[in-house]
């Protein structure tokens, strides 16, 4: 019997732990004796990862005028924390590679997640946030709890889906009725089990109700608004077929004019195909 999100994640045996390269970079960043070259060396040990990061650094996501031709240069130009978050973003998708596409359309799931990441990153840049890659990563991760629910509890998930249709509610609300908890709590517990930071877990946990987050409501609000926009624009699907409701307080927290949306979506259109190819090329 699964009573809460923590129980569901505790019983997981099918989802691997995080690759060590992320934790090693994270340790180096927090070690004042380390430098850029140490971080670049850890990344360079993995040639596949290095090539992928260089492609990302030279993509429309960054639009640098000069070519970034080495990992050391990428670390210097993009920033250590930013690169750490991109490393995790490139690796998290492959952790769920084994999920059978008859259970979840993984390609569509990641399209939704990547588009949410790109939009969250763009909204963060309009707000002049310092590490915008962090928001890309949060967007990518925001619905991973749903994968756990689909894989571990297919019968209850099917029940939630029909409950949604019968009652004309969002899948998020249907999860709460059928499971007693939702995918944001499951995702947050999974990230916690990976030892990801508390701010990240909390932002994902409250991405449907940002104002309930005690400390990271602004981060949750950025993901909340990005998720709503992606559902409206119909980029991929993570299970929700309609747009989840907007929390007015979350929109106000962003402190942006609605008139930025056109420009933000223009940027999304320009980056989307390239970023999808960069992150999904051999994973789908």
């Amino acid at each position: 019997m699964i009573n809460n999100a923590r129980d569901l994640v505790k019983n997981l045996d099918s989802i691997a732990s995080l690759p060590s390269v992320f934790t090693r970079i994270d340790k180096l960043i927090n070690d004042s004796g380390s430098n850029l070259v140490d971080i670049a060396n850890v990344i360079s040990e993995d040639p596949g990862l290095s090539i992928r990061l260089l492609k990302i650094a030279n993509s429309a996501m960054f639009n640098f005028s000069a070519e970034i031709d080495s990992i050391t240069r990428a670390v210097a130009v993009i920033g250590t924390r930013q690169l750490r978050d991109l490393v995790l973003a490139t690796q998290v998708i492959s952790l769920f590679k084994h999920i059978d596409s008859s259970i979840v359309d993984m390609h569509s799931f990641w399209k939704h997640s990547i588009a949410t990441g790109i939009l969250a990153r763009l909204l963060a840049s309009y707000r002049r946030e310092s590490n915008i890659e962090y928001y890309y990563l949060l967007g990518l991760l925001h619905d991973i709890g749903r994968l756990v629910m689909f894989v571990e509890q297919p019968a209850l998930t099917a029940k939630a889906i029909s409950h949604r249709i019968d009652n004309n509610i969002t899948l998020h609300d249907a999860e709460l009725s059928i499971f007693g908890f939702d995918h944001s709590a499951v995702g947050s517990e999974l990230m916690h089990s990976w030892d990801l930071s508390r701010p990240m877990c909390e932002a994902v946990c409250y991405h449907h109700r940002p104002s309930l987050s005690l400390n990271y409501s602004k981060d949750a609000a950025i993901i909340h608004v990005a998720d709503i926009m992606v559902n409206a624009l119909n980029f991929g699907c993570s299970g929700e077929s309609d747009i989840p409701p907007l929390e007015d307080a979350a929109w106000k927290m962003l402190d942006l004019s609605p008139y930025v949306l056109t420009e933000v979506v223009d940027h999304l259109d320009k980056q989307y195909n390239e970023v999808i190819n960069l992150f999904l090329d051999d994973e789908s």
Binding site: A232, L233, D242, P244, P245, D248, W251, P258, T262, V265
Partner: peptide, 24 residues
């Protein structure tokens, strides 16, 4: 209208998002 049914249509954010989606 079906896709937007859980949103408050008079909210400035929703109005702008709807306009964008309609155009697309």
């Amino acid at each position: 209208a079906k896709r937007f049914r859980f949103l408050n249509k008079n909210h400035p954010f929703t109005e702008e998002l709807y306009r964008l989606c309609l155009r697309r």
